[in-house]
Structures are given as C-alpha cells and as structure tokens.
C-alpha cells in the first residue's frame, strides 16, 4: 500500500504539524533552525548594541544635566517627548536623516538609533534618580576626606546609585527586546522578520515560535542584568 510507504518516511511524519499548520510544532523548530538562529542573532545584536550605546549616551546626558541643572528640564523633556512618538513613526523619521530608502536607510542602523533614543528616556531618568538619592551626609563625608569631584562620582555616588541604574536598565532591556520587532518596517526586525513572514504567508508555527523566542529573550536579558547587578552590588545581597 502506498500509504504505508509514505508513512514510513520519517521526514513526512515529522513534517506533519508543519503541513497541518499547527501553532505548536517542534518539527518547525528543527527544520528551520537556521532561519531561527539567524533571526535570533540579529535580534540579539540589535538589542545589545542599542542598549550599550543607550547606556553610554544616557550617562553622558545625566552628567551634563547634573553639571548644568538648567539643562535638566530640557534633557528630561526632550527624551520624554521622543518616547511618546510611536516607534513606527520614529523609525520612519530617521530615514531621511540616514539617507533615504537606500541601503543606509533600510539597515539595522536605523533600528538601533531608534532604540537608543527610546532607551534614553528610561535610562537618563534612572541614572539621575539614582545619583540624586545619594545621601548628602555620605557626599559631605567623602568631600571632607578630600575626595575630588571626579573621585566622588566614581567611588561614592555611582556605586550607591547602581541599584536604581540597574533597575532602569532592566526595564530598558525588556522593552528594547520587544520593540526590536517593529524594525521589520525597514526589514531589520530580528525575530520580527520571521513573525512578519509567517503572518503574511499564514504560517502559524513560524509566528508563534518567533513570538515565544522574543519573550524568552526578554526574560533572559532581564535575568542576565539581574545577575550582573548581584555581582556588581554585593552589599545589597546581605541586606536583601
């Protein structure tokens, strides 16, 4: 019987849930692992670069806002306004600046710059709140011990601000991972590309697998930063 011959084919059996277009389909994960790995790789790359740049720029802005108090309102106001602008519009508005619809515009750089701008709102606020919460006594004691302003910042204020900074970094990381998917607008959305392809070809396992991977990635990023905090802020462990 031909049916038995067909059924004996391991690949046909394994591909069944793909053919039936089921949401949960391990065979999809196995057969398209290269696609998934590539999309995941791009997703991680975009997220990590955006967060690293965002943290650097946010530190710079926070220090500027602290040095010149008058700029604080401007810095906070601008970053909040940027955060209000929907991602679809922000990515689009970056296109003319980065060079039209050519290769430069439709690149991962567009997505990364957009994500950096979003992370700034969360990070600048977090860093400023953390630095401002350092008790005045502690600061005075350090100054009395002869700490220079720079040493005061690096040795006293920043370490004490770290818990707040890390809290904002976790929020920024989780939302950056999720927002990266919108990068599909310029064809660089990491896992968002797979979600888009699956959705437009009515391929359920692709949409669900990529979506779940996105959430898993957000959780992993959150846990990694939590771990880094535990390492860098050891005195908190004994308190908690």
């Amino acid at each position: 019987m031909p049916r038995v011959a067909l059924g004996g084919h391991a690949a046909t059996l394994a591909d069944d849930c793909i053919l039936r277009n089921e949401w949960v389909c391990p065979a999809y994960v196995v057969s398209r692992r290269d696609d998934l790995a590539a999309a995941l790789g791009e997703h991680v790359y975009i997220t990590v670069v955006a967060l690293a740049l965002g943290t650097l720029v946010a530190f710079g802005l926070a220090l500027v806002a602290r040095r010149w108090r008058r700029l604080q309102g401007v810095v906070l106001g601008t970053s909040t306004a940027l955060y209000t602008i929907p991602s679809l519009a922000l990515f689009s508005l970056l296109l003319p600046i980065l060079g039209s619809l050519g290769a430069a515009g439709l690149s991962a750089t567009t997505v990364i710059i957009g994500l950096v701008l979003y992370s700034l709102t969360i990070l600048v606020r977090g860093i400023l709140t953390g630095l401002d919460a350092v008790p005045a006594d502690v600061r005075e004691a350090a100054v009395g011990m002869g700490y220079s302003p720079r040493r005061l910042l690096w040795r006293v204020e920043l370490p004490l601000a770290l818990p707040t900074v890390f809290a904002s970094l976790r929020v920024a990381a989780v939302s950056t991972v999720a927002l990266t998917t919108v990068g599909v607008l310029v064809q660089h959305g990491g896992l968002g590309n797979l979600i888009d392809r699956g959705q437009s070809s009515n391929f359920k396992p692709e949409v669900l697998t990529a979506s779940v991977l996105c959430v898993v990635l957000a959780v992993v990023a959150d846990l990694l930063i939590l771990g880094a905090e535990r390492l860098l802020v050891p005195w908190r462990r004994s308190v908690a």
């Binding site: 989780v174 999720a178 959305g189 968002g192 959780v219 959150d222």
Partner: peptide, 18 residues
C-alpha cells in the same frame, strides 16, 4: 505591567490575525 512590556505588540497582532 512587566509582562506587557516584554510581549511585542507586533507579535500579538500577528498571532490574532491568524
């Protein structure tokens, strides 16, 4: 709120469409 932040809007929309 934390869950809402971690789940991409685009993913939820795509799933609902299917």
């Amino acid at each position: 709120s934390n869950v809402g932040r971690a789940v991409p809007v685009f993913a939820v929309l795509s799933i609902l469409i299917l």
